[in-house]
Design a protein around this nucleic acid. Structure first.
Lengths: 154, 154
DNA sequence: CTGCCTGCAAACTCTTTGCACGAAT
DNA sequence: ATTCGTGCAAAGAGTTTGCAGGCAG
Protein backbone atom coordinates (compact mmCIF):
# COMPACT_ATOMS: atom_id res chain seq x y z
CA UNK A 1 0.00 0.00 0.00
CA UNK A 2 1.42 3.37 -1.03
CA UNK A 3 1.90 6.15 1.47
CA UNK A 4 -0.57 8.28 -0.42
CA UNK A 5 -3.24 5.60 -0.32
CA UNK A 6 -2.55 5.06 3.37
CA UNK A 7 -2.91 8.75 3.99
CA UNK A 8 -6.35 8.73 2.39
CA UNK A 9 -7.27 5.66 4.37
CA UNK A 10 -6.25 7.44 7.53
CA UNK A 11 -8.38 10.46 6.67
CA UNK A 12 -11.34 8.21 5.91
CA UNK A 13 -10.80 6.37 9.17
CA UNK A 14 -10.81 9.63 11.11
CA UNK A 15 -13.99 10.85 9.46
CA UNK A 16 -15.70 7.50 10.00
CA UNK A 17 -14.91 7.78 13.68
CA UNK A 18 -16.20 11.33 13.85
CA UNK A 19 -12.65 12.66 14.29
CA UNK A 20 -11.18 15.57 12.43
CA UNK A 21 -8.24 15.29 10.04
CA UNK A 22 -6.33 18.11 11.67
CA UNK A 23 -3.00 19.37 10.42
CA UNK A 24 -1.28 17.96 13.50
CA UNK A 25 -2.71 14.49 13.04
CA UNK A 26 -1.74 14.48 9.39
CA UNK A 27 1.74 15.73 10.17
CA UNK A 28 2.14 12.89 12.62
CA UNK A 29 0.90 10.47 10.00
CA UNK A 30 3.30 11.82 7.40
CA UNK A 31 6.22 11.67 9.80
CA UNK A 32 5.39 8.09 10.70
CA UNK A 33 5.22 6.96 7.08
CA UNK A 34 8.41 8.77 6.12
CA UNK A 35 10.38 6.61 8.55
CA UNK A 36 12.40 3.73 7.20
CA UNK A 37 13.16 2.20 10.54
CA UNK A 38 11.11 1.34 13.55
CA UNK A 39 10.64 4.43 15.64
CA UNK A 40 9.68 5.56 19.12
CA UNK A 41 7.07 8.10 20.18
CA UNK A 42 9.81 10.60 20.91
CA UNK A 43 11.41 10.19 17.50
CA UNK A 44 8.02 10.55 15.90
CA UNK A 45 7.47 13.78 17.81
CA UNK A 46 10.73 15.20 16.54
CA UNK A 47 9.98 14.24 12.96
CA UNK A 48 6.41 15.47 13.08
CA UNK A 49 7.61 18.80 14.46
CA UNK A 50 9.95 19.11 11.52
CA UNK A 51 6.86 19.05 9.33
CA UNK A 52 4.60 21.07 11.60
CA UNK A 53 6.19 22.72 14.58
CA UNK A 54 2.89 23.08 16.36
CA UNK A 55 2.72 19.34 17.07
CA UNK A 56 2.98 18.59 20.76
CA UNK A 57 4.02 15.52 22.63
CA UNK A 58 0.50 15.07 23.97
CA UNK A 59 -0.97 14.99 20.49
CA UNK A 60 1.57 12.41 19.37
CA UNK A 61 0.63 10.18 22.27
CA UNK A 62 -3.05 10.75 21.59
CA UNK A 63 -2.69 10.05 17.88
CA UNK A 64 -0.65 6.88 18.14
CA UNK A 65 -3.60 4.79 19.43
CA UNK A 66 -5.69 6.10 16.55
CA UNK A 67 -3.05 5.01 14.07
CA UNK A 68 -2.64 1.58 15.58
CA UNK A 69 -6.42 1.29 15.89
CA UNK A 70 -6.75 1.98 12.19
CA UNK A 71 -4.27 -0.84 11.53
CA UNK A 72 -2.03 1.53 9.60
CA UNK A 73 0.64 1.37 12.25
CA UNK A 74 1.85 -1.59 14.27
CA UNK A 75 3.04 -1.33 17.84
CA UNK A 76 6.05 -3.50 18.60
CA UNK A 77 7.04 -4.24 22.16
CA UNK A 78 10.50 -5.72 22.42
CA UNK A 79 10.55 -6.05 26.19
CA UNK A 80 12.06 -2.72 26.98
CA UNK A 81 10.13 0.02 28.73
CA UNK A 82 9.70 1.77 25.45
CA UNK A 83 7.34 1.03 22.61
CA UNK A 84 8.37 0.95 18.97
CA UNK A 85 6.14 1.59 15.99
CA UNK A 86 6.29 0.79 12.31
CA UNK A 87 3.96 1.07 9.32
CA UNK A 88 1.86 -2.05 8.81
CA UNK A 89 2.58 -4.50 6.06
CA UNK A 90 0.27 -6.84 4.22
CA UNK A 91 1.55 -9.79 6.20
CA UNK A 92 0.67 -7.97 9.37
CA UNK A 93 0.39 -10.19 12.41
CA UNK A 94 2.46 -12.93 10.92
CA UNK A 95 5.85 -11.39 11.46
CA UNK A 96 8.55 -12.34 13.86
CA UNK A 97 11.20 -9.89 15.02
CA UNK A 98 14.88 -10.44 15.48
CA UNK A 99 16.25 -7.79 17.78
CA UNK A 100 19.92 -6.89 17.98
CA UNK A 101 20.66 -6.46 21.67
CA UNK A 102 23.66 -4.30 20.87
CA UNK A 103 21.98 -1.62 18.79
CA UNK A 104 18.20 -2.28 19.14
CA UNK A 105 17.85 -2.72 15.41
CA UNK A 106 14.70 -4.70 14.66
CA UNK A 107 14.55 -7.12 11.73
CA UNK A 108 11.13 -8.28 10.54
CA UNK A 109 10.78 -11.87 9.41
CA UNK A 110 7.74 -13.50 7.86
CA UNK A 111 6.47 -16.27 10.08
CA UNK A 112 3.15 -17.43 8.64
CA UNK A 113 3.00 -20.40 10.98
CA UNK A 114 2.35 -18.10 13.93
CA UNK A 115 -1.35 -17.80 13.24
CA UNK A 116 -1.68 -21.55 13.07
CA UNK A 117 0.27 -21.92 16.29
CA UNK A 118 -1.83 -19.35 18.12
CA UNK A 119 -5.05 -20.98 17.04
CA UNK A 120 -3.92 -24.45 17.97
CA UNK A 121 -2.59 -23.56 21.37
CA UNK A 122 -5.44 -21.23 22.31
CA UNK A 123 -8.26 -23.59 21.40
CA UNK A 124 -6.86 -26.21 23.75
CA UNK A 125 -7.24 -23.73 26.59
CA UNK A 126 -10.69 -22.48 25.69
CA UNK A 127 -9.32 -19.18 24.46
CA UNK A 128 -9.69 -17.19 21.28
CA UNK A 129 -6.38 -15.85 19.99
CA UNK A 130 -6.12 -12.15 19.29
CA UNK A 131 -2.48 -11.78 18.39
CA UNK A 132 0.84 -13.51 18.71
CA UNK A 133 4.42 -12.46 18.68
CA UNK A 134 7.67 -14.27 18.19
CA UNK A 135 10.85 -12.45 19.00
CA UNK A 136 14.47 -13.49 18.99
CA UNK A 137 16.98 -11.41 20.88
CA UNK A 138 20.48 -11.76 19.55
CA UNK A 139 23.96 -10.34 19.62
CA UNK A 140 25.52 -8.91 16.52
CA UNK A 141 28.59 -10.88 15.56
CA UNK A 142 30.22 -7.77 14.11
CA UNK A 143 29.72 -5.97 17.41
CA UNK A 144 31.58 -8.68 19.25
CA UNK A 145 34.68 -8.08 17.17
CA UNK A 146 34.57 -4.49 15.94
CA UNK A 147 32.77 -2.91 18.88
CA UNK A 148 29.83 -1.54 16.96
CA UNK A 149 26.97 -2.77 14.80
CA UNK A 150 26.90 -2.19 11.10
CA UNK A 151 23.10 -2.03 11.12
CA UNK A 152 22.34 1.33 12.53
CA UNK A 153 24.39 4.44 12.17
CA UNK A 154 25.54 4.86 15.74
CA UNK B 1 14.64 -28.90 41.01
CA UNK B 2 13.28 -28.70 44.55
CA UNK B 3 12.90 -25.40 46.33
CA UNK B 4 15.44 -26.50 48.91
CA UNK B 5 18.01 -27.34 46.26
CA UNK B 6 17.32 -24.04 44.53
CA UNK B 7 17.81 -22.19 47.78
CA UNK B 8 21.24 -23.74 48.19
CA UNK B 9 22.05 -22.94 44.61
CA UNK B 10 21.09 -19.35 45.23
CA UNK B 11 23.33 -19.14 48.30
CA UNK B 12 26.18 -20.67 46.35
CA UNK B 13 25.61 -18.23 43.52
CA UNK B 14 25.73 -15.30 45.91
CA UNK B 15 28.93 -16.47 47.52
CA UNK B 16 30.54 -17.14 44.15
CA UNK B 17 29.75 -13.57 43.15
CA UNK B 18 31.14 -12.19 46.37
CA UNK B 19 27.66 -11.27 47.58
CA UNK B 20 26.28 -11.99 51.00
CA UNK B 21 23.35 -14.29 51.66
CA UNK B 22 21.55 -11.77 53.82
CA UNK B 23 18.26 -12.47 55.53
CA UNK B 24 16.49 -10.05 53.19
CA UNK B 25 17.81 -11.71 50.07
CA UNK B 26 16.84 -15.12 51.34
CA UNK B 27 13.38 -13.93 52.34
CA UNK B 28 12.90 -12.60 48.83
CA UNK B 29 14.06 -15.90 47.43
CA UNK B 30 11.70 -17.87 49.67
CA UNK B 31 8.77 -15.63 48.80
CA UNK B 32 9.48 -16.03 45.10
CA UNK B 33 9.60 -19.81 45.27
CA UNK B 34 6.47 -20.05 47.41
CA UNK B 35 4.44 -18.49 44.59
CA UNK B 36 2.32 -20.72 42.41
CA UNK B 37 1.48 -18.11 39.82
CA UNK B 38 3.52 -15.60 37.94
CA UNK B 39 4.11 -12.59 40.11
CA UNK B 40 5.11 -8.94 39.95
CA UNK B 41 7.80 -7.09 41.87
CA UNK B 42 5.14 -5.52 44.07
CA UNK B 43 3.54 -8.86 44.90
CA UNK B 44 6.95 -10.25 45.68
CA UNK B 45 7.60 -7.35 48.03
CA UNK B 46 4.37 -8.03 49.92
CA UNK B 47 5.08 -11.73 50.22
CA UNK B 48 8.70 -11.24 51.22
CA UNK B 49 7.62 -8.78 53.90
CA UNK B 50 5.28 -11.41 55.28
CA UNK B 51 8.38 -13.53 55.89
CA UNK B 52 10.70 -10.72 56.95
CA UNK B 53 9.16 -7.34 57.52
CA UNK B 54 12.48 -5.58 57.14
CA UNK B 55 12.51 -6.20 53.38
CA UNK B 56 12.26 -3.00 51.43
CA UNK B 57 11.11 -2.27 47.91
CA UNK B 58 14.61 -1.22 46.92
CA UNK B 59 16.08 -4.52 48.01
CA UNK B 60 13.45 -6.44 46.06
CA UNK B 61 14.33 -4.49 42.94
CA UNK B 62 18.02 -4.96 43.62
CA UNK B 63 17.63 -8.68 44.23
CA UNK B 64 15.49 -9.51 41.21
CA UNK B 65 18.35 -9.05 38.74
CA UNK B 66 20.49 -11.32 40.89
CA UNK B 67 17.82 -14.02 40.80
CA UNK B 68 17.30 -13.77 37.07
CA UNK B 69 21.05 -13.61 36.59
CA UNK B 70 21.41 -16.86 38.48
CA UNK B 71 18.84 -18.40 36.14
CA UNK B 72 16.67 -19.40 39.08
CA UNK B 73 13.98 -16.93 38.11
CA UNK B 74 12.69 -16.06 34.68
CA UNK B 75 11.52 -12.59 33.72
CA UNK B 76 8.44 -12.59 31.52
CA UNK B 77 7.44 -9.47 29.64
CA UNK B 78 3.95 -9.68 28.23
CA UNK B 79 3.91 -6.27 26.64
CA UNK B 80 2.47 -4.37 29.53
CA UNK B 81 4.50 -1.81 31.44
CA UNK B 82 4.96 -4.30 34.22
CA UNK B 83 7.29 -7.25 34.45
CA UNK B 84 6.25 -10.68 35.64
CA UNK B 85 8.50 -13.27 37.20
CA UNK B 86 8.33 -17.01 37.73
CA UNK B 87 10.67 -19.74 38.94
CA UNK B 88 12.65 -21.33 36.14
CA UNK B 89 11.83 -24.76 34.83
CA UNK B 90 14.05 -27.38 33.25
CA UNK B 91 12.69 -26.50 29.83
CA UNK B 92 13.72 -22.91 30.40
CA UNK B 93 13.94 -20.82 27.28
CA UNK B 94 11.75 -23.15 25.29
CA UNK B 95 8.42 -22.07 26.62
CA UNK B 96 5.70 -20.08 24.94
CA UNK B 97 3.14 -18.11 26.90
CA UNK B 98 -0.56 -17.83 26.26
CA UNK B 99 -1.86 -14.73 27.99
CA UNK B 100 -5.51 -14.17 28.79
CA UNK B 101 -6.20 -10.53 27.96
CA UNK B 102 -9.18 -10.50 30.29
CA UNK B 103 -7.46 -11.56 33.51
CA UNK B 104 -3.71 -11.52 32.73
CA UNK B 105 -3.39 -15.20 33.57
CA UNK B 106 -0.27 -16.62 31.93
CA UNK B 107 -0.20 -20.21 30.67
CA UNK B 108 3.17 -21.78 29.95
CA UNK B 109 3.45 -24.07 26.94
CA UNK B 110 6.43 -26.12 25.87
CA UNK B 111 7.69 -25.01 22.50
CA UNK B 112 10.99 -26.79 21.90
CA UNK B 113 11.08 -25.65 18.29
CA UNK B 114 11.83 -22.09 19.43
CA UNK B 115 15.52 -22.69 19.92
CA UNK B 116 15.79 -24.12 16.46
CA UNK B 117 13.87 -21.21 15.02
CA UNK B 118 16.02 -18.64 16.82
CA UNK B 119 19.21 -20.27 15.61
CA UNK B 120 18.05 -20.56 12.03
CA UNK B 121 16.77 -17.04 11.72
CA UNK B 122 19.65 -15.40 13.56
CA UNK B 123 22.42 -17.10 11.66
CA UNK B 124 21.02 -15.78 8.39
CA UNK B 125 21.46 -12.26 9.74
CA UNK B 126 24.93 -12.74 11.18
CA UNK B 127 23.60 -12.74 14.71
CA UNK B 128 23.98 -15.05 17.66
CA UNK B 129 20.67 -15.75 19.39
CA UNK B 130 20.45 -15.12 23.12
CA UNK B 131 16.80 -15.79 23.81
CA UNK B 132 13.46 -16.03 22.11
CA UNK B 133 9.90 -15.66 23.15
CA UNK B 134 6.63 -16.68 21.65
CA UNK B 135 3.47 -15.24 23.13
CA UNK B 136 -0.15 -15.57 22.18
CA UNK B 137 -2.62 -13.03 23.53
CA UNK B 138 -6.14 -14.37 23.68
CA UNK B 139 -9.58 -13.75 25.03
CA UNK B 140 -11.17 -16.16 27.46
CA UNK B 141 -14.27 -17.68 25.95
CA UNK B 142 -15.87 -17.97 29.38
CA UNK B 143 -15.32 -14.26 29.95
CA UNK B 144 -17.21 -13.42 26.80
CA UNK B 145 -20.34 -15.13 28.10
CA UNK B 146 -20.17 -15.05 31.90
CA UNK B 147 -18.30 -11.80 32.35
CA UNK B 148 -15.36 -13.18 34.27
CA UNK B 149 -12.55 -15.65 33.80
CA UNK B 150 -12.53 -18.96 35.57
CA UNK B 151 -8.72 -18.96 35.70
CA UNK B 152 -7.90 -16.51 38.36
CA UNK B 153 -9.91 -15.74 41.46
CA UNK B 154 -10.99 -12.22 40.66
C1' DC C 1 38.05 -0.23 60.23
C1' DT C 2 36.80 -1.33 55.72
C1' DG C 3 33.41 -2.40 52.63
C1' DC C 4 29.08 -4.60 51.49
C1' DC C 5 23.88 -3.98 52.27
C1' DT C 6 20.20 -1.80 53.67
C1' DG C 7 15.83 1.44 53.93
C1' DC C 8 14.25 5.70 52.76
C1' DA C 9 12.99 8.99 49.71
C1' DA C 10 13.97 11.40 45.72
C1' DA C 11 14.83 10.91 40.92
C1' DC C 12 13.94 8.98 36.44
C1' DT C 13 11.63 7.44 32.10
C1' DC C 14 7.88 6.89 29.46
C1' DT C 15 3.14 7.78 29.09
C1' DT C 16 -1.38 9.70 30.40
C1' DT C 17 -4.47 13.30 31.83
C1' DG C 18 -6.82 17.86 33.62
C1' DC C 19 -7.41 22.19 32.16
C1' DA C 20 -8.39 26.28 29.62
C1' DC C 21 -7.93 28.14 25.19
C1' DG C 22 -8.69 27.89 20.16
C1' DA C 23 -10.61 26.05 15.86
C1' DA C 24 -14.15 23.87 13.21
C1' DT C 25 -18.96 23.12 12.20
C1' DA D 1 -23.05 27.98 20.24
C1' DT D 2 -21.40 23.63 20.78
C1' DT D 3 -18.23 20.22 20.19
C1' DC D 4 -13.79 18.59 19.31
C1' DG D 5 -8.74 19.18 19.41
C1' DT D 6 -4.82 21.27 21.15
C1' DG D 7 -0.52 22.62 24.11
C1' DC D 8 1.15 22.94 28.49
C1' DA D 9 2.33 21.21 32.64
C1' DA D 10 1.33 18.19 36.23
C1' DA D 11 0.35 13.55 37.49
C1' DG D 12 1.01 8.61 37.22
C1' DA D 13 3.15 3.97 37.18
C1' DG D 14 6.96 1.18 37.56
C1' DT D 15 11.67 1.13 38.44
C1' DT D 16 16.29 2.93 39.71
C1' DT D 17 19.54 5.36 42.50
C1' DG D 18 22.09 8.66 46.02
C1' DC D 19 22.82 8.75 50.57
C1' DA D 20 23.75 7.95 55.41
C1' DG D 21 23.68 4.51 58.69
C1' DG D 22 24.26 -0.55 60.08
C1' DC D 23 26.21 -4.96 60.14
C1' DA D 24 29.72 -8.48 58.79
C1' DG D 25 34.36 -9.89 58.27
Amino acid sequence: MSTEASRDKFKAFLVAKGLRPTSQRLAIFDAAFAQNEHFTAEELLANARALDESVSRATVYRTLPILTGSALLREIDIGKNIKYYAPSREDNGQQAQVICIDCDKIFEINAPFMDWYGNTVSSKLGLTPVSQRLQVSAHCNAFQTTGHCAHRNN
